[in-house]
């Protein structure tokens, strides 16, 4: 570091606080300690995710089958691609951030401003992508039936492809369950709880010979178990209870409700970090533009906010692995 921050370090002798064994300013050191504590918070969440996943290790949703959408590509299964894109956006915004820090060391005001601006744009794209990912997840895909015990049954045709409940359910007039505002805002539009109710899905399933049920239990190869036609009929008659479309904190058509809970909680907490990072970056950006750090003769603030920003990227690397890959 070519620059010095004189404001925070006192100039006393060894016993007057003048000794700096870590050779880091107060502000930077505190940012590092905050990062350690925040890293422990995030590892708490991810370890809790691992705990719940290990509890239901034979019935956990497969991320590839949950996150298969890409914007503007309707009906094209594209597992992983969108999160990979988000990962690149975040790594790239880390690069522009570290370039801003470097330009700050060289006291190049306009370069710092440009790189900070690019970092803010990258952060905004990431937060937007995450909002889209949430919306897709909440809206749901094929729909499913929940059993009395809280398990999820999904529907397949005899070729093994997923079938949406809307494509086979029979409409039974007057049977739909009305939604009242007193039951919360699970479904925001329309006055029906789900587009089809359980009786309608059951009738459609029984009438359609080539439909099978897939349970959330995984076989030895890690694929969800598909029941025979007879077992499927018995299962839906005996255990079926209600229709689930999409995911929320209570129900989840993709599998275990805890998967949705942790998805909302961990990516939400991370997204909140990115959002606050963008806000802090904007403040620092304006400070750079109006020349605050030029007058201070030090761009250390850019360095500190950079540490936070890289940390957000670092957390995403782990979320990416443990939510989407492993």
């Amino acid at each position: 570091m070519e620059t010095t921050v004189a404001t925070t370090a006192s100039k006393g002798g060894v016993w007057g606080g003048g000794n700096q064994p870590l050779r880091a300013s107060y502000g930077k050191m505190m940012m590092w300690f905050f990062i350690v504590s925040d890293a422990l918070t995030f590892s708490g969440f991810l370890a809790a995710y691992g705990f719940s996943r290990f509890k239901f290790v034979d019935a956990w949703p497969i991320a590839d089958e949950v996150f298969t959408h890409f914007p503007f590509l309707h009906g094209v299964p594209a597992p992983m691609f969108y999160v990979a894109f988000m990962t690149f956006i975040l790594i790239f915004s880390s690069v522009t951030m570290v370039l801003a820090v470097d330009a700050g060391h060289k006291m190049k005001q306009s370069k710092v401003a440009i790189y900070m601006f690019l970092t803010i744009i990258g952060g905004a794209i990431f937060v937007g992508s995450q909002a889209w990912e949430w919306a897709t997840f909440i809206k749901g895909d094929y729909g499913a039936v929940e059993t009395k015990g809280g398990k999820i049954l999904q529907f397949l045709d005899t070729e093994g492809d997923r079938v949406a409940i809307g494509s086979f359910a029979q409409s039974i007039p007057g049977s739909s369950v009305e939604h009242h505002a007193s039951n919360g805002v699970w479904f925001m539009s329309g006055n029906k709880q789900t587009s089809y109710n359980f009786e309608e899905v059951k009738a459609g399933f029984l009438a359609n010979e080539n439909l099978l049920i897939r349970t959330q239990y995984l076989d030895e190869k890690g694929h969800p178990t598909v029941l025979s036609r007879e077992a499927s009929i018995e299962k839906i008659k005996k255990d079926g209870k209600l229709v689930v479309e999409g995911a929320n904190l209570k129900r989840n058509e993709y599998g275990h409700p805890l998967f949705a809970d942790f998805f909302f909680f961990i990516t939400g907490f991370h997204g909140f970090h990115v959002f606050s990072g963008v806000l802090i970056n904007i403040i620092i950006f304006f400070n750079v533009v109006i020349g605050t750090y030029e007058r201070r003769k030090s761009y250390e603030m850019v360095e500190k906010v950079g540490l936070y920003w890289h940390f957000v990227d670092l957390v995403w690397v782990f979320v990416f692995t443990f939510f989407y890959l492993v």
Binding site: S43, G50, F51, K55
Partner: peptide, 21 residues
């Protein structure tokens, strides 16, 4: 500090999760 505490927490929670399974 971070690595020690994280490994400790992960070990305990995963062993416990497997036990409940």
């Amino acid at each position: 500090t971070a690595i020690f505490l994280i490994c400790y927490l992960v070990l305990i929670l995963l062993v416990e999760g497997d036990y409940i399974f």
